[in-house]
Design a protein around this nucleic acid. Structure first.
Lengths: 198, 198, 198, 198
DNA sequence: AATGAATGAGGTTTCATTCAT
DNA sequence: TATGAATGAAACCTCATTCAT
């Protein structure tokens, strides 16, 4: 009737759910989960709080939906890893792929890293832990010596750290990512070498 | 500042103040800063909320006081480190000492790690960052290649991770700590070796 | 308005409207008027809330429509009663008929009984009161002594109570209804006997 | 210290809890539990909503506290009744005493009667049911015929109805109460007479 | 005949903080 | 050295209702 569908208004129709997720993740990552209020999210989107509740049942569910969407690749990676032989090459590949995944959803992982306390009380806390456990299982060799097991874990952790602990370091972002990946790969190498095969 | 408490009055004051800090840190570490209310702290101590305000001006100040008390050793370490020659041995010693500091105030560091988002908005956020920056300055060689710089940072980060990410790993706690220290020391070794001295 | 539905279109409408009324009454009776949300009703029917608004203008109107449909027999009874001689036999017959009416729309009357506070603020509150007043007029003899007037009222009330206050009592439902009716009739009897006719 | 304790202000100190209960019961009885908001209660008392939460943990707890305070006499009556011989005189006395109890806490019982649906979902719903059950046990003779059991229950119910259903009836309040009591006593009489003693 | 998307008002509850005593 | 009483702000969430399609 009249056709008010001429641009932004029309554009927004139907993608509100996605926009909520985007803004929410941005604010969650910036200020933390607890500190970010639904009022804030709503205001940024220029909708009412009630509109958020049309799309999501609770504040937590907004986070869950983001989490589920963005961590699917980890599940895929774990599944893939389980079907590969447990060779050094496989582990190197896993590290490479995981690095890509982290880069692809940096804000979420930054959020998870910086809000562990808050997340622990949430449903995704357990889920994330399980996922990390799965990742560990395809990377860490349970027969390795303790120090080498630490190396494996440290490799994964170095990747995580790479995302946000190197912000203060000078240098091009892509260069830094490569350097981080090299160090992680190296740790895996050393850990693997330390474990004699029967 | 004389050190020894000399009388019931003085003792009592120190007593409650300390107990508040203890309980607060415990709860902060367990549930996060935002999720922990003063009501909760007061209830655990069996005092009223108002009593907390006799000892501390704000909620944030409780955290600040804990932080200041427990991170003093880092300041000392940095100061010590600055006065040493920038040799490999120095760095190894710094890593060792830092490991001890972490172990000595594990709950606080766990808290800092798991509440980065919340802490960032607080006064101690900036302070902690500066302290970490100071630590970095006495460990990381600015002339090293990027990959070696990452190794230095990874060493520090591995120590941090050691505190709480290895919880799921089997093995004696003390053994694990030693293993973590070894991996960190090794990373420093490699980083140092990679940097030719003029 | 002709009465018989003549086609799918007409039938469908009647269908949904009726289903809304059924589910609404069920939930109103179970949880109370205020506690029952339109969301809940819609969900049970597997339609959207907006659909309810196609059939009814407001939440209150849903209740009004149910009320009007189910309490018409009371109006008829009152009208009938007014045209009868005010004899004992008439009163006995009114009690019998009222008992049938109650049994025929038990959920509604249970609802009215248990939600008097809520209903009082609604339009049907006044209407129901008037109807009860009408009933009283054809049963209670205004010339009777106070204690006999109470007996008349108590008779009506005992019928009401019969619906839901006897749930805990052992025995067959039909038996209980008969017993309740007998007590009510008896009260009317006594009240009538107490009032000497001029 | 100055002494601002001169009248109303001082008067109110310490009795806020009681005042909350009074106003709450008044509003609950008038508008129903669900329809009465804490904002309303607070406004009438000229305090903030938060003040209510200093004295009571939840809205429900306000009601519970009122209920517990005012229904204690019923518990006492039941306990007393249990220790008496199950004679007609005892039952008559119970009816008399119960009538007094109802009159002494009329607003609460009116509330309970008119908000059964709302109350059923609350903690006091169950409690009240149990209490009524207890009352029934000391009044209703389980060996009596069904119709006499109904008479016992009707007696109790008539007392309840007396409180608020006779409002429209002409006559002095005290007279009405006596009339109601007489009808109830009569019902008990008849019920008792109907049951032959072994 | 019904839906999808949204709103405005208002609900209960929690929190850090204050202040007279 | 602490308490009892209270506040103001804000949180999450729910509801009846609307309207273009």
């Amino acid at each position: 009737m009249g056709g008010i569908m001429d641009g932004t208004r029309q554009r927004r129709r139907g993608d509100t759910r996605q926009r909520i997720q985007d803004v929410a993740l941005e604010l969650f990552a910036e200020q933390g989960y607890e500190k970010t209020s639904l009022r804030e999210i709503a205001e940024r989107l220029d909708v009412t709080k009630a509109a958020l509740y049309y799309h999501f049942k609770t504040k937590e569910e907004i986070l869950v939906s983001i989490f589920d969407d963005l961590t699917q690749p980890i599940l895929d990676l774990i599944e893939w890893g389980r079907r590969q032989p447990h060779t050094l090459e496989t582990k190197q590949e896993i590290v490479r792929r995981y690095s890509d995944i982290l880069a692809g959803a940096a804000p979420l992982f930054r959020f998870m890293q910086e809000n562990q306390a808050a997340v622990r009380e949430l449903r995704i806390g357990e889920t994330f832990k399980e996922r990390m456990q799965g990742l560990r299982e395809i990377v860490v060799d349970p027969d390795a010596e303790l120090v080498d097991q630490v190396r494996y874990v440290s490799a994964i952790f170095t990747l995580h750290a790479g995302m946000f602990l190197l912000q203060d370091l000078a240098g091009d972002d892509e260069d830094k990512r490569r350097a981080v990946l090299e160090v992680a790969a190296d740790l895996v190498n050393q850990a693997h070498r330390g474990t004699p095969k029967p």
